[in-house]
Design a protein around this nucleic acid. Structure first.
Lengths: 370, 370
DNA sequence: CTGAAAGCGCTTACAG
DNA sequence: CTGAAAGCGCTTACAG
């Protein structure tokens, strides 16, 4: 192990910049000069010790009300802002959480982060956000960065590369909450939507409309939400006494661009579905476009159901029938769970929210059903 | 001023929680016990001073290679992670930036944040994210929180409530970069798209198709991007020698739900547009739906152009002609600008990117034009 | 009610 | 090459 390679991913850059780049930077940094007032400056101005200033600023009863008032006035005038970094060094709490996401540009993810943010704002926490881009190396790097920032807790959404860094996480010193995690069972605390139940309902909706051949277009294999949604789909068929036809299952990988192949496979064969249940709305979006390109009308020829209810889904032509996920609620719940863990409270390991089927115009009875 | 109300917004909660809630919390915090190894622990194990450990971990030439190696091995084994909070106390740099957004659930915003994130990851910075929800009070609160976290710089995207807290910002001790700011001229550094140019091009596209009556559906009045896009629209008309018809202008407030009224106004009057240029894609989405509801076909009866090129726009029926904003690029540029400022480099105050007109099927020549 | 002291985890001149 | 010392900005027993 050379002297260079010791802290492989997370550290190399920070350490380097602290040593060289940042060292040089400090010298000519125009903003470094602007002195931020400290507790000492106020102490000097108020002619008291900095201990007293600290107490006064916390409204401690241990300080003479008049002195306190004088100090607080000074603090206001000088634009004093306490350094939370310094405080957290002694309190050992940073009032900070880390959120790692695959990509913030995913509308599901940003809806969730919105909820986390709201709850954090309400409770006085700040949130670090980091994209992993589903890159395991980068995911490890951001988790390390969070450790070094001494976050009080971590929320990981839609982790798909869990296997690699799960050992890291479990060795960590802070509580972790997984949201919509794709690798089940490894962790104690998670927030998820009840995929099975919601998918069963969505599929049942198609069955009730009279569809006999219902396709499923899923995500990559082996991810929990795909597996669960698929399970719900099969369960609905089973309960309705319909047989499961494996050739009606295809995989679109969760993105609009990747739906073409799935649609082609499903509709090039003899046994064609009259309805498809899609893993998510982005897939449904791609599916609907491909169906149009193939000259099939939705819902006249094919009914389409999505999952998520993204902001644009009700504006599509036709408006998309889909399962609404309460993203902000899920984010808030994840944050609440984290806060409970920080408070040492007992809390259920796995919290589930229920989706809501939004029936819109992309689903209808199959042709010739009346 | 009572002892309670001194630090009105930003501070009340943090201070309170440090005093009471958090104090109680620390006691029963299950995770507080797990000791994170410090430089001292390693020093003890390695039988050297903590100064030496610090040097070894930075690959300082001032330490015996063998000692250094021993120390680094120990650091690895103990899972040591340096505390950046402690380091930043002395280096006076936190390697941290704050990003304030109106709402992360806006796809334009999340695209930008994606770019900021990428650049931050590349350069060893961590990013604090905070939503303002376009609430001035909350915006001030998050800026204060950033100050207390001693961020090295701040990026503010799409600020709409600038007026209120701009005095705060300008008194701050860190550089600020505005992205797509809605209140021009107050600040030194900003990254924006060239709205005028892009809108002119979009409008020219409609003119070239033969449209004589082109509507504009804008955002709220007084916001810079609306003003600029409107300017581009007018400029295109002017250059083409067409007269500007004020009754063809309406406001949709930038969201899909709010487009109905605008569409109704434009199409209930005698002079109806045969094409509309919309402030953004969300507006266009709502406009297209409303047109469908009114029995008008796009583009046969009305051509529609958007702005942004959100991820769903090319999947719409018809695919939307729109101006692509390079969101991640803009985010990266904002971050680069910030880093340059931190390095004390000279940098142009206002950087503009150019949009790209994506011509798709939502635009066509007007009816009866041939 | 107040201040001096110790300490949180680091970095970095200064003196050997 | 190494360690002791000072200090970053705070908090908090401890002693008055």
């Amino acid at each position: 192990l050379g002297p260079r390679g010791l802290f492989p991913m997370a550290n190399e850059k920070p350490i380097e910049s602290a040593g060289t780049a940042a060292g040089g930077r400090a010298a000519k940094r125009p903003f470094a000069g602007t002195h931020q007032a400290s507790i000492k400056d106020i102490a000097r101005l108020a002619n008291v010790s900095h201990s007293t200033v600290s107490r006064a600023l916390h409204n401690s009863p241990l300080v003479n009300p008049e002195t306190a008032q004088r100090i607080q006035k000074l603090a206001l005038e000088t634009g004093y802002r306490p350094s939370l970094a310094a405080r957290s060094l002694v309190t050992r709490q940073s009032q900070t959480v880390g959120v790692v996401v695959t990509t913030i540009a995913d509308p599901f993810v940003s809806g969730v982060v919105q909820g986390i943010e709201d709850e954090a704002d309400r409770t006085g926490y700040s949130v670090f956000l980091a994209n992993s881009n589903a890159d395991p190396e980068r995911e490890v790097r951001v988790v390390h960065a969070f450790e070094e920032r001494r976050v009080d807790g971590i929320i990981v959404t839609s982790s798909r590369v869990g296997a690699l860094y799960i050992p890291h996480l479990s060795r960590m010193h802070v509580p972790i909450v997984l949201l919509n995690n794709q690798h089940p069972g490894e962790f104690v605390h998670s927030v998820m939507i009840d995929n099975v139940e919601a998918s069963e309902e969505a599929t049942r909706h198609l069955i009730c409309l009279g569809h006999k051949h219902i396709g499923y277009i899923g995500d990559r294999y082996g991810h929990q939400s795909d597996t669960e949604r698929f399970t719900g789909y099969r369960r609905a068929l089973e309960k309705a006494g319909m047989i499961f036809e494996p050739e009606l299952v295809a995989h679109g990988y969760g993105r609009a661009e990747e739906a073409n192949e799935a649609v082609d496979r499903l509709f090039d064969q003899t046994l064609k579905p009259t309805a498809v249940f899609c893993y998510n709305d982005m897939t449904a979006l791609g599916v609907m476009r491909r169906l149009r390109e193939r000259g099939l009308r939705v819902p006249a020829d094919v009914s389409v159901v999505g999952f998520d209810d993204l902001h644009f889904s009700e504006y599509l032509d036709p408006p998309l029938t889909t399962v609404r996920q309460p993203m902000p609620l899920m984010g808030r719940m994840a944050m609440e769970t984290l806060l409970s863990l920080l408070d040492g409270e007992e809390i259920e390991q796995s919290r589930k929210v229920t989706g809501e089927l939004m029936v819109r115009a992309s689903t209808a009875p199959p042709k010739g059903s009346r």
